[in-house]
Design a binder for these strands. Structure first.
Length: 336
DNA sequence: CCCATTTGACCAGA
DNA sequence: TCTGGTCAAATGGG
């Protein structure tokens, strides 16, 4: 278990393996994904603390700039400034996102249906049978690719894609590969955010009943960074015997120890590929406590390595740029 | 040739 | 009638 500390916030990160279905697939994106805990509520205090942190960082940046103007600027101070700028930008991004979620949740503040940001939220009519199913919503921060073929340790088969009214991006429908062989009824829907092309929203409906058990081989290749205390089934590394060779391209981030850290709703980012090698990241991540299956250097290399084939240029800049937040499926899926 | 993806058609709920 | 979810034939890649 790795622990990261940032300012007055602390997140525990557990690292466990996950798989990629296709090692040679050019469609698999490099991405973080942040598991969304459906029960987590957005609170204004979080936004305020987020903004206060941003203010503090801005002050530090100002001090840095004062020093650099009075003395010869070194590359390290330049990197430090870049880091601060990136952190500030990320904080604003998080704050805006939090506010947008709160706005969606508050019926009194509900947007008009044609509000652009409302596209970010899946809208769906719920049927009685669906309401009985398990629904889990995740937000992914993906990079490089735009097809949303996000891997979560399960084998999925795409069975449909639909243009969604009011959304720029289509929604893809996946079902478990073992649907017919093992009668596994798990289904997921993936939709790219309209507002942030690096973000994929993924909805899981139904639990896997297939015999998807993690293979030891997989544990040496992939990992996840857990930031959630509530272990989501889809988040647990599970591999069937037919899991295909994997590529270490994915880092999964969940909140660990949710109850204890409910008030610590911090996301983090690797703001820019050019400055990913700076010290701030190593300050945030204590990678020395990774699970035996993975190594800290492995994690670092995964984080640092940019996708070799970035097909979607618009997502390249946002590579690891943010980790999105918590969504309550009850409001997320409700009609706006 | 096999299998996953694509995509238009169809169906059901609101 | 509109919209979202699923089906299934067509297509393409390995």
């Amino acid at each position: 278990m790795a622990t990261l500390t940032h300012e007055n916030s602390q997140l525990s990160l557990s690292l466990s393996p996950i798989s990629l279905r296709k090692a040679n697939s050019k469609k698999i994106p490099n991405f973080f994904f942040l598991q969304v805990n459906a029960e987590m509520m957005m609170e204004e205090k979080l936004v305020i603390s987020e903004l206060e942190l941003g203010k503090d960082l801005a002050n530090r940046l100002m001090n840095n700039l004062k020093h650099s103007s009075s003395s010869s600027s070194s590359s390290s101070s330049s990197d430090s400034n870049k880091t601060l700028i990136s952190e500030i930008l990320r904080i604003y991004q998080n704050a805006i996102f939090m506010l947008s979620l709160n706005e969606d949740k508050n019926p009194l503040k509900r947007r008009s249906p044609d509000h652009k940001d409302s596209n970010f939220v899946f809208k769906k009519r719920k049927t009685s049978s669906e309401q009985q199913k398990t629904e889990k919503v995740k937000v992914f921060v993906a990079s490089g690719q735009d097809n949303g073929s996000i891997d979560d340790g399960h084998c999925w088969r795409k069975y449909g894609q639909k243009e969604i009214h009011g959304s720029k991006n289509p929604r893809a429908y996946y079902r478990c590969t073992h649907r017919f062989t093992q009668h596994c009824l798990a289904v997921k829907q993936v939709q790219k955010s309209d507002t942030d092309p690096s973000v994929f929203q993924v909805k899981y409906v139904g639990d896997h009943t297939c015999n998807n058990i993690a293979s030891p081989k997989a544990t040496t290749i992939n990992f996840s960074v857990s930031m959630f205390g509530e272990v989501n089934r889809a988040n647990v590394t599970e591999h069937s015997e037919d899991v295909k060779p994997k590529k270490p391209e994915e880092v999964m981030i969940n909140l660990e120890d949710l109850e204890n850290k409910k008030n610590i709703f911090r996301t983090f980012s690797f703001p820019n590929h050019e400055i990913e090698n700076t010290d701030w990241k190593s300050n945030i991540f204590t990678v020395g406590e990774l699970s035996p299956a993975t190594s800290g250097s492995r994690i670092t290399s995964e984080i640092v390595s940019a996708p070799a084939s970035v097909e979607n240029a618009e997502t390249a800049d946002s590579y690891f740029s943010s980790l999105e937040n918590i969504i309550d499926p009850d409001w997320l899926w409700s009609e706006l």
